[in-house]
Design a binder for these strands. Structure first.
Lengths: 235, 235
DNA sequence: CACAAGAACTGGTCGGACCAGATTGTAATG
DNA sequence: CATTACAATCTGGTCCGACCAGTTCTTGTG
């Protein structure tokens, strides 16, 4: 039994990826610029070519670079061709400080996804679904006392994801998971702003509306909550 | 200039990934089951452990397996913990035959994303934005004669993505790109159903509404288009 | 000057050696 | 007999160096 479940220590690959993504996101090169070859970088950094290659694969998945096989690696126009992973990479590096515009876009999408799921769940909810949500809520309430920000945020995320799972629209769950990293950043901020007690109360109100099969009410609760959050954020 | 940009031939890693994802998606194992160790699989398939490891990294990114370091690799509950990459993997394997439920969820999201972008663009459009869209449309019209399904679908995707880019809400573009693979499957189906001429006409109507700064009109055109598509699909 | 051969790149693949954490089996200890 | 301590042996994780196959640039030949 170890008190620290894992403390893997940064690997060379992780170092490389972090270093490169920082440099690219900081604008060290312009989109379209050609990067040094894998061999050059490997020699310069004193690591193996395989590590560099594997790192670039990851950077390509993040949408930060474009690999032209046998030809070269180029800085990508990530604001045009990037994807969710790009956003996650930005969230990871810039910490919890996302721009307002980013927040707005994310919340628009969350409303679309979770709103759809809420309406569906209200129609088809079974008694055990409601019980399950209540159990999750009380687990969060117990956890809130110890107040580990990140952990609490994770549980709020899971509570809302459960809406998608229970709704039966499994695809929505996949989309929800896709936004996991960026959602955590949101929840940390939300909990700081409103406090856990308020947030937990809202979970219970959601549960009641689901139990009453009030789809529109649940949707509106979500929508007004988001609108209020954005209004507060404006200041 | 070569007519065939690339025909790389399947690598051992690709083979491995395809083989494993097929097996998992086909339900050969249950979620939570432990897979054979990297060494066993490498020996069995006659390939290097590095290849297997790299392949599993990719499968983990697709949400199909969960890697517990130093312990084992397990089949993931991908319908619960999967992400967009999982969906893309499914779309890749099952071809263009996505289930109706999947299509509905995707279109719900597209409406949320693109609808938001449309409204924003109608507000802030500049004359050159409209001209740009018109240029894209006529390029598509020229292309439609040669009628390569996949290529045409790609251009329709790009046209609609351009809405997001021009709207200035760059984050929406990232989400749009995330759905690229699955969107292509949609557009191929759409074009088969309605034909290119009809689809191109719609692009022009969108452009006119944007020029007239009619945000609601543009949104409704999108919404009714999607609704009609779903209605037809019902049959 | 045109153009093709080839040298010198590029990224892509691969196997095997080594590392360290996790697990399991076993033997010593109370 | 239960418990603990420890070591053998699993696991995935990392890394290197060699090799492969396209791409691009240089160079020599007509």
């Amino acid at each position: 039994m170890n008190q620290e479940p894992k403390r893997p220590g940064p690997t060379k690959k992780e170092d490389f990826v972090r270093r490169m993504s920082r440099a690219i996101l900081a604008g060290k090169w312009n989109p379209g610029d050609r990067l040094p070859s894998e061999r050059e970088l490997a020699a310069e950094l004193g690591i193996g070519k395989t590590v560099v290659h594997s790192g670039f694969e990851q950077l390509a998945a993040m949408g930060l670079v474009e690999i032209k096989p046998k030809s070269g690696i180029f800085v990508a126009d990530y604001m045009r061709n990037g994807n969710i992973e790009t956003l996650n990479a930005i969230a990871r590096l810039k910490g919890d400080e996302l721009g307002r515009e980013v927040i707005v876009a994310i919340l628009d999408l969350r409303l679309a996804i979770e709103g759809t799921a809420l309406r569906a769940l209200c129609q088809g909810r079974r008694p055990e679904d409601v019980a399950h949500l209540r159990a999750l809520t009380s687990a969060i309430r117990a956890l809130a006392r110890r107040s580990d920000e990140k952990e609490l945020a994770e549980h709020f995320f899971r509570w809302h994801r459960e809406i998608c799972i229970l709704s039966g629209k499994s695809i929505l769950t996949l989309f929800m998971n896709t936004m996991h990293e960026v959602s955590i950043a949101f929840w940390v901020n939300y909990l700081r702003m409103y406090g856990p007690a308020f947030a937990i109360d809202r979970l219970e109100r959601f549960t009641e509306l689901i139990e009453a099969r009030d789809g529109e009410g649940a949707y509106n609760l979500l929508a007004t909550g988001i609108a209020d959050y954005l209004a507060r954020l404006g200041k």
